[in-house]
Amino acid sequence: MTLPPGALLYALAGVWITVIGLRGVLAEEDWFRKIVGANVMGSGVFLLLVALARRAPDGPPDPVPHGMILTGLVVAVSATALMLALLGFLNDRENGEDDT
């Protein structure tokens, strides 16, 4: 029996983490939890991409997905920051309406 390659296991884990994150974004009520879910989902996509870069068992890994992940990580953080800023904006407005 031949063992499946390690990269395939991580790719499958990436798929399921993405799906779990997606479920969090769609099914949770709380905004903060949705943001955490979006981050989990992002990690899953990145894990899948890193694993796909390692499909050929020999030689160097594919640098194109690596480049996409490198830039994607920074973009994902800025998306998180934007979501948090929007959440803060919503929060401030609701509190302001309560006060007046």
Partner: peptide, 19 residues
Amino acid sequence: LSWIRIDAPDLALTEAAIG
């Protein structure tokens, strides 16, 4: 940690720092 296992140690460091 898992990215180190699939030959992306530099990405792993970035993920640890940023992600």
